[in-house]
Design a protein around this nucleic acid. Sequence first.
DNA 1: CCCGTTAGTTCACTGCGTCAAGCAATAGTG
DNA 2: CACTATTGCTTGACGCAGTGAACTAACGGG
Lengths: 413, 413
Amino acid sequence: MKQTAEPDGGLAPRTVTEPGPIRPFGSREQHLGALFEAVLTRGPLSRRDAARLTGLSAASVTKLVKPMISHGYLIENVREAGVPGRPQIPLQVDAGRHHAVGIKLMDGEIVGVVADLHAEVQSAHRMKYRDTSPEGVVSAIEEMTRILLERSPVDRARLLGIGVGLGGHINANTGVVVKSPFLGWRDVPLRKLLVERMNLPVVIENDVNTLAVAEQWFGAGSSFPSFALVTIGVGVGCALVLENQLWRGVSGAAGEFGHMVVDPDGPECHCGKRGCLEAVVGDTAIAATMSAAVGRRFTKVSQVVAQAHAGDPDARQVFTQAGVALGRAIAALLNLLNPPLVILSGEGMTASDLFIDALRAELDRDAFSSTATDCTVLVRPLPDETWARGAAATMLREGVLRSLSKLSDQVPA
Amino acid sequence: MKQTAEPDGGLAPRTVTEPGPIRPFGSREQHLGALFEAVLTRGPLSRRDAARLTGLSAASVTKLVKPMISHGYLIENVREAGVPGRPQIPLQVDAGRHHAVGIKLMDGEIVGVVADLHAEVQSAHRMKYRDTSPEGVVSAIEEMTRILLERSPVDRARLLGIGVGLGGHINANTGVVVKSPFLGWRDVPLRKLLVERMNLPVVIENDVNTLAVAEQWFGAGSSFPSFALVTIGVGVGCALVLENQLWRGVSGAAGEFGHMVVDPDGPECHCGKRGCLEAVVGDTAIAATMSAAVGRRFTKVSQVVAQAHAGDPDARQVFTQAGVALGRAIAALLNLLNPPLVILSGEGMTASDLFIDALRAELDRDAFSSTATDCTVLVRPLPDETWARGAAATMLREGVLRSLSKLSDQVPA
DNA sequence: CCCGTTAGTTCACTGCGTCAAGCAATAGTG
DNA sequence: CACTATTGCTTGACGCAGTGAACTAACGGG
């Protein structure tokens, strides 16, 4: 805590020097972005429908779309008639026009993809790495990028950059890894290092946040202004999108969900506390609980999952307990923020059938008033490269919105 | 939960009918509001400083301030020289120009105030009521308003309306009390009833939210774009202000903090679960825990507080435990949202010395990375009418911002 | 008394979105 | 096969809001 004081030290600043947070002018940039997002996420769209979606007038849409077409962001599809009246001209994003590399850093392993503007994966690769020093990781990412771009060659001019997602406390604005337990890092300026080495735009972001961005652009999140994304796997993570904005918190550390204490008398967590959510429902926790219950050593969740699917009551019980704990934590989230949507994702959700019922029941039990009934809960098992895809999506979004804002009306030569 | 499904049912809406969420035009209304808020919360302010604060140009400030002065919202103070150059003209809000009634509904008791635009309380009153039917409550509020306005007569034209704060799930937009446990209500259109009876603008809002609004305008919150407000007393409540906006959630139920489960094996809660935060640190919980520990019957917290202040180790222990539980819950909040400020308030904070150290220690222990160090924690013991004052502030804000938006440049006759 | 300095005001200008009118392209109809 | 109804897109005049630059106002100091 910075300080604690009884306030009301009513300071009347004689000279105010705060930098005005208000944009001096023009919402054009925002409207360009909104229009692009609408066309991207809501499939092919006529100008008229785009106008309705964004709230702009048809005239404005025409004006704004023009430079986006001439610069190659959007393309006009062939008109399709069928109803009386002039047929609509479907607009869509020229997906192949822009690409990005997405990379997910894990403990000892790294997954990378090349994705186009629809976040369709063009190629993927997976490799191990040992050297966890900043230099080593940068080299691994360089190597990965080289391999990926060899497999699916992308014109450098059309490569928006590299998005990197990793667990821990990442300050996306400064590009600094504030703290990453699995790498043992503190305050490593990863973005700077990567930009210097690769000479390409780089975005680094918490891995769960990258998933949320992908979900917001290409998934269920596109229909909801706010949602929470909870991932279950080795760890438990959470990302928040509030009013269409990724919520990062003051220091960029928002969304730390795994170390919420759900049972003060629960098992010890690697963070030093007892009964953290992660220590109850994380992968290692599942295996450990099962081992303790049966008296036989389980090292992997997959073994417990297999047992449970085979009908073993002990294994089923382990998952039921995990579901209850998870439900309790998510209920806390629901009660606190009352979001319209919660997406459950992560490797752990592939076995969601084993605990989803317990989770739901607990949600209904714990949720205050209508916070549970007013919330859609979505289960999203994770295809393997999705994390890396999310990182690519984050870079795509950043890059496209940035370049859109520089768009001028004039047609390029 | 509404539903659960694997999504990607990629619906391509042929005809889009969504109402565009974008404002058709003009940010003038927002700038008027921002300017007014700046002058209100940042004390007397010259046009120049106001410009710096809001980010507007000096020219714009001149233009926007003109109608606010001619309509009596702002007044020019006498200039004060001292430095070379033309002296500044301090602008300030004409506090006496607008008033509002603020009312806090409690179980069997009702507190009301009349407040001016600075939320200075002009007069206050407190009374009991028995009839908890909607009719009865409306009558009590009417009676209260009558008494308050007798004591401090306010020109009806200058009375912006009545703000009502009460615990429970309140939908401020529709003016409906969705659920109020202490009144035993469900879906009561309280605002409608009050408007009909009183023929005045009415705002109803969750009581903790009204406190947050007051804090945002007149308290520490005015210097932070986002903060969380946690109240401890009979119940435990929470309100969130995110990016200068009160966060209500989809259904207006956000901020339910008291029924987060902090200890699954803890004491039973009146909500039916076990180990809710409220059941561990609420007023009745404190008394109950103390009774159990000592084997003597305590019915009021004040008794336990007295014992603790007298040095009774049992009593002190009770508060220490409560501090730990509270710290744990607030740490969860910190980790999830990473806000720059948390304000601790409510009647319970008058005894904050008994548990604040335990709370702080737990925060530091539980918080991930820098979420605790980057967060200012403020203790705000509650003067008695503050709840009602908050309700008045909510009405003032609503009323003023609404009427500002109708302001035209022309000088009134 | 004039100068430097700072605050506030005026005004021509510009960017941006809108409205209204016009143009374009289809299906249906006599 | 015109002709009309219908719907989508485009164009241009308009208005609003905010700005920069020039100007006026009001002070202290030499």
